[in-house]
Simulated assay, not measured.
Amino acid sequence: MEPTTRDELLSAAKRYAEGVPIEVELSQIDWECSERAVRRAGACLYDPRTEAVTIRLTWSAYRAFGWEEFTETIRHELVHAWEFQQFGESGHGTRFAEKARELAAPRHCRTFSEARLRLRCSSCDWDARRYRASEAVKHPTERRCGACGSRYRVEHVESGRCWRTHAGYLVSRRKLDDEW
């Protein structure tokens, strides 16, 4: 039976983790459910002072993926927990990739939502997706293209509305109102 609540998801994830063949001290991992994440399905947090490891799973990602696909996210985050517990650090490098392969876990989890905003260069093909109104989105004149250094414009993907200045952002935000 698939989890239908956040608490059920965390309980199911903990039970599932017990069957994953990885040398992780599960009793030393805290599990949380995120309501805020808009693109990452999970995160593994580490406090080097206390060596505490927390796996944070995203409810919206679980709802988008379903249990079967979401177990890939759990295995992915367990690889991070393994690295933190064994080495005090984690990334997506060679060591991570090898352990993830052993567990049939993805090296990178796919996003579960479409970006709401896109930065597009005025001179080259560079673009970047944004899920929230970051400083680069709100104040595009203070930033430059990541590839060629030119100015860029910001596009609200769903509406197609674009802006190049902070004032343009404010006008767009106001005009889009509930559609933001």
Rank of each mutant, 00 (worst) to 15 (best):
Tyr131Phe: 15
Thr141Gln: 15
Arg144Lys: 14
Cys109Lys: 03
Arg36Pro: 02
Tyr152Val: 05
Val137Cys: 07
Trp163Gly: 14
Leu45Gly: 00
Trp31Phe: 09
Thr58Leu: 09
Cys121Asp: 07
Leu103Ser: 11
Arg143Ile: 00
Lys138Ile: 14
Val53Ala: 05
Asp30Gly: 08
Ser150Cys: 10
His92Glu: 02
Lys175Asn: 14
Ala133Leu: 10
His156Pro: 07
Glu51Asp: 04
Glu23Val: 01
Trp31Ser: 01
Ser159Lys: 15
Glu102Asn: 12
Val154Ile: 15
Tyr152Met: 06
Arg143His: 14
Glu135Trp: 12
Glu8Ser: 05
Tyr46Thr: 01
Ala105Asn: 06
Asp30Pro: 00
Ile22Ala: 01
Ala52Leu: 04
Arg101Pro: 00
Gly91Trp: 09
Ser172Ala: 15
Glu2Trp: 04
Arg144His: 08
Arg36His: 11
Val24Leu: 03
Arg116Gly: 11
Arg129Gly: 13
Pro21Arg: 07
Ser34Lys: 03
Arg161Gln: 15
Leu10Gly: 02
Pro106Trp: 10
Thr58Val: 08
Gln85Asp: 10
Pro48Trp: 03
Gly149Phe: 07
Ala17Trp: 02
Gly146Arg: 05
Leu117Val: 08
Pro140Glu: 08
Arg144Leu: 11
Leu117Tyr: 15
Cys109Pro: 01
Ile55Arg: 00
Cys121Phe: 03
Ala97Gln: 13
Gly146Phe: 03
Leu26Ile: 05
Ala147Tyr: 04
Arg143Lys: 12
Glu142Cys: 06
Ser27Phe: 01
Leu45Gln: 07
Glu51Trp: 03
Ile29Thr: 07
Arg75Ala: 02
Glu69Tyr: 07
